[in-house]
Every structure is written in C-alpha cells, then in structure tokens.
Design a protein around this nucleic acid. Sequence first.
RNA 1: GGGUAGGUUGAGCAGGUGGUGAGCUCCGCUGACUGUAGAUCAGCCGUCUUCGACUGUGGGGGUUCGAUUCCCUCCCUGCCCA
Length: 386
Amino acid sequence: MPGAARFAVETPPPADGSTRARTGLLELNHGVVETPQFMPVGTNATVKALDPDEVAAAGATIILANTYHLYLRPGHERIERFGGLHRFMGWDRPILTDSGGFQVVSLGDLRMVDEDGVTFRSHIDGSTHRFTPEHAIAVQEALGSDVAVAFDQPVVPSSPREVVADATERTHRWAERSLAAHKRTNQALFGIVQGGLDPELRAESTQVIASLPFDGICLGGLAGDETPEQRDATLDLAVPLLHDDPRPRYLMGLGSPADLLEAVHRGVDLFDSVLPARVARNGQLWVPGGRLNIRNQRHLDDDAPVQDDCPCPLCRRFSRAYLAHLFRADELLGYRLATCHNLTFTLDFMARIRAAIRAGTLPASMPELRLRAGRSSGSAGAVKSA
RNA sequence: GGGUAGGUUGAGCAGGUGGUGAGCUCCGCUGACUGUAGAUCAGCCGUCUUCGACUGUGGGGGUUCGAUUCCCUCCCUGCCCA
C-alpha cells in the first residue's frame, strides 16, 4: 500500500553528474533501513546456516524471503496462524518477500505460463500449483512481510526480442493486477521492471512501472547471463528515467561486491543475492581484493585469520587452517562461519560505500573500492580475456 | 605346517574362464556459483611430446600367433584347522 514505506533521500547525488549514487532512509513496518543496502536471502525463512542473531550481527537490517517456497512449505496459512513470518522465524527487522516470479525462470521446465498466471509443478513433491498475481499477493499478505513484490515474468537476458517483449508486457498487466489485489495497509508493494537488455523495451518498462503507484521500483532480469558491461549500460539507461522519482530502486539478484559497487554508483538503492552465502557454503571467502578458496591445499598450514581486520566470528577467533580443516571434514561449523564472514564482508562493504557517498567522496574513492571488491565474477573475467 | 579365499592405477571395488583392462566410488587437486530445486556442480585425478600415444592386472618362469585369463614356482594378505 502506498504509505506503508517512506523513503527519504538523505544524500542526493551531486549536481556535477560524477555519480548517481545517493544515500537514503527507508522506513518500513519493522524498522528503518539505510540505503544503499544489501539484503541477505533467506528463501525458506532462514538465511542458510545462520540463526537470526548471527544475521543481525553480520550487519543485516533487512532480509529477503521467498513467497513460492514458503507457500509450498510450510504453507503461508500455517505461518499466518503462528502470527506471521517475523514471529515464525524469529526475525523482528524488516523482511521483503520476493513474489515467486523468479521461480518462473529458475524452475525451468516445471512450469507453464499463460496470460492469467503460472502453473507450477512443486520442486518438492511434483504436485501441481497455480500462481496468479492475485494469489502471489494474497500469500505475501498472509506472510506479513514489510515489502511485498508484484508477480512478474522474468526472462533470461539473451532471449529473443519477441520473448522479452511478450514477458515484459505481461509483467506490466500483472503489475496492475498485483496493485489492485493488494490490501494490507502496513505492507509496502514494489513493482518490477523487465525489458531484458533491449534499450527500447527496458525504457518502456521502466516508464510503465514508474507510472504506477508502487512504493518502490525493482529492476528485474539482470542477474542472468548478461555481461557486466551490458548490465551497466542497462542501468545507465533505466536509472536516469527515474531521475525525479522519490522511490527506492532495487536491483534484484546481484551480490558480488564489484556488482554492488558499480550499481550503487549508477543510482541503485537496494540489492539482494544468494551469492555471498552460497559461495561461502562452497568454500570461498570474500576478502579485500578478491576471493580465497579455503579448500586450497596451501591454507592447511596457515595460522592467520581469513581477514585480519574483520570483526566476524570466524576471523576473530579461528585460523585459515582450522576453517580448511572444517571444510575437508564436512563439519557444519565451517558453513556457518564462512557464511557469517561473507555476509559481514558484504554488509561492511555497503557501509563503506554509504560513508563515501555521505562524505561526497564516492567518485574519488571508486578506484580504491573497486580494488577492495575484486573481480565481478569468474565468468566475467573469462569474457574479458576471451 | 595343512586348507581356503584373495593380490587390478593413493583407498575400496568392477571387469576379464586365450583376442586391444585407464570403468566406478571415495580421497586428493582446481574452478564455478548472483530475485536459492544448490553444505551444490564441473573438470582433472598412471606417464608422455595429451584432438593422440605409451605403460599397467604381486614377482619370476612356462604354454601360445597372442596370457590379466591356462600351467609351475615364489612372495604377500585375510580366514579356518593344527
């Protein structure tokens, strides 16, 4: 509902155009979020491997949960009976729920799209389920998240233009239906821009979604197979179209430090991604300048912490050798400590970016921050060297 | 000492009863992961000059055109009996 989120730009971008980055305060039902901000992902009402205190200690003020997953298990009605998602999962800060639209893409051949909605086969037991914009909103209202998101149809960026156009136009119709269905007054509703990498479609989608009374604007379909250059170009196109818009801009699904930095520089306020947590579980730690793969043999005899100046539970207390041992032994503590570290690194990095914006030094600090972020990803590096 | 079952690439196995054994699972090494069907996946994992080639079935003999397979002998391991 309009009014369920109040967003105030704190530090506007400078008039000289050297950056579109800004800081702001996003006031939601369960608290205030400083932007630019990163939201750790807790798909199944848990940030994998961590308890809520650890998530908060890592610096998170808002997390993301998933409508589709929680609808299937344990069921949104059950969560509602227990007093809503916050109480159920023991997290009393803001929560944003993704609408389940992304599963249209990620579940591959387990779904069929038509104009009215999407028919899914459950990834858990194969049973058939139906999601429409109205249903996606109803589930999110039952969950009681601070921010609900309109049901959309993402497309992979490399799809043929007609496929992108078709999905984008349907996303617009579904956006209006999501708005019409949404009734909960203490829950904000964000709309999603699609349009792929096509400049015309992206511009049109940005204008259509921005014309609707959403509380925030999500930029979707940019966490796929596009290159960093294509993504930057798309942001450089879309964000200026929102120039005078007072609402927060949320780039869905990106989370490498390099990607966060470049997108903030281009005017994005909010992010979410599975990446820091998943990568941690798979043994890679984010450190200033790049990644450290704790499974590498050389760490077995290294008594140093993963990162000297890091305040996380891993770095405060344990050596690389110990973490390397935990991963080799498949011990659960390893996953937990690594996840704490990568989230701490990510959220600290966002805090550094906010500080630079407030101080008016972001453009000057970009080289240093880029150095700290390291590469965007391995595949991006491979693209560059190809 | 007698009997019996075995000895295959780090470990554990598969296969092969005369016609080209590099196949699997672990372990190990490296990489990937971006609105989580992911504590997952991929590549490598005998040697080399690596789109190919070579070597390798405990050691030594023998039979044979050809032996990992059949025969002899030795060594080693498990189990049973003394």
